[in-house]
Design a binder for these strands. Structure first.
Lengths: 224, 224
DNA sequence: GGCCGCTGTCACGGAATTGTAACCTTGCGG
DNA sequence: CCGCAAGGTTACAATTCCGTGACAGCGGCC
């Protein structure tokens, strides 16, 4: 899970950010002043820093400059929060190496989008888009699964389930793990829901269903 | 290395542009007023001009007009910077031959992307901006779409939507992605607006609409 | 002003999807 | 062989999703 450090002195805004970003699936670290933020960034090396420009003590510009100055944190992208009218400061912030800025009062939606855009840019060469395992092929980008070259029509949930199993081919996945990966951490449901979807997946996989094994008392495993 | 001339009277913004563009790998020339900018463009023949609309002395419109009027500089693409609310001026700027415009306050990321888009267009004359996929042809520069050679009249939004789908042919585009790409990050709208425009697009594509597939629970995909 | 094209929203309704429960089968230890 | 728990199967109601038509706001244009 990607971790975001929020450096912001106003409690209300910090909590709003925590709430929003956690709902978006990020882990959130918090700092209420510049020096604390700098130390936490250095110690924790988050994936991104959201940095308020107006801070007590060390201000945002200085924090940004120091982040970029030390090698360990230099590559961490920084998103600046600026109040309307801080034009000059904004400019300086960007000059110091921030990757983007958002003007307060900001839309949480826009903020989340910009964060995702920045993170996406940095993590391109990650996991390949196409997974193959025997007769099965899964193309994450096209959202398409083929069996012996024939397309298998899957629903969104079935697709995510198969994707998780294929990414962990050969390993047993517990119901808990599958619930977290496929349904998300906030899902409050019955573990046996997984069973139902495994069954639906098996039905659509025809004779290849044999590769989706039950490990009694533990979970499921895609033979790899 | 490609050279960009920035004509902008505000020092802060000019420095921001210099910093951003240099980080993006361009060489930057600067001019602080219209007449100076015009002279520098004529003398240096940069690959692109970033031109502020509000300038002391010769204003942006006039600079643009003169750039396009003299043969040596007529083919240099111009990217206009306009302040919010200068709608009328923006239109005039484009009428005068500017290749694109960005509204202040702008995102440096967006600016860099637009500059690259314009330069890409110019560097591959004739075919860089034309996308083909089966019976469909989309000419980004001419803003024209043809189906089996017949022109399809599209509105601006429909065009951008189709352009994004064609650039990602074969891949699923979520509503979020489409909103970002077509409507912009700051659009605060209803995700189902996308559906409506997809529908309008399908209506105009006739039987080729079958290639614009719905991926239930995920988004849309243009068959590639 | 009046008309018209473009846009973003909305409500409706059919259909696909999904989570849950109830019931059945199977494997396992004793 | 029995009992039991885990998992398979089936059914179903609630929910979600998406296509569709309608509509109002807006700006351009005559």
């Amino acid at each position: 899970m990607q971790r975001i450090l929020v450096i912001e002195d106003e409690n209300d805004i910090r909590q709003l950010l925590r709430f929003t970003l956690e709902r978006e699936g990020f882990a959130v670290l918090e700092a209420a002043d510049g020096l604390g933020g700098l130390n936490m960034a250095t110690a924790e090396l988050p994936d991104l820093v959201v940095l308020d420009l107006m801070l007590p003590g060390l201000d945002g510009c200085e924090v940004c400059r120091r982040l970029k100055a030390q090698a360990a944190t230099a590559s961490i992208p920084v998103l600046m929060l600026t109040a309307r009218g801080e034009e000059v400061d904004r400019i300086v912030g960007l000059t110091l190496g921030a990757d983007d800025y958002v003007v307060k009062p900001f839309s949480v939606r826009e903020l989340a989008l910009r964060i995702r855009a920045i993170l996406r840019r940095g993590s391109r060469p990650g996991q390949g888009s196409v997974l193959c395992r025997g007769r099965l092929t899964l193309d994450a980008e096209a959202h398409r699964v083929t069996l012996d070259g024939e397309e298998v029509p899957l629903t969104a949930t079935e697709f995510r389930l198969l994707e998780d199993l294929m990414r962990h081919a050969g390993a047993v996945r517990t119901r808990e793990q599958l619930l977290n990966a496929v349904w998300g951490y906030s899902f409050e449901g019955y573990a046996r829901t997984v069973d139902t979807h495994v069954r639906r997946l098996r039905a659509k996989l025809g004779d290849e269903a044999a590769a989706l094994e039950t490990v009694r008392g533990v979970g499921y495993r895609l033979r790899g």
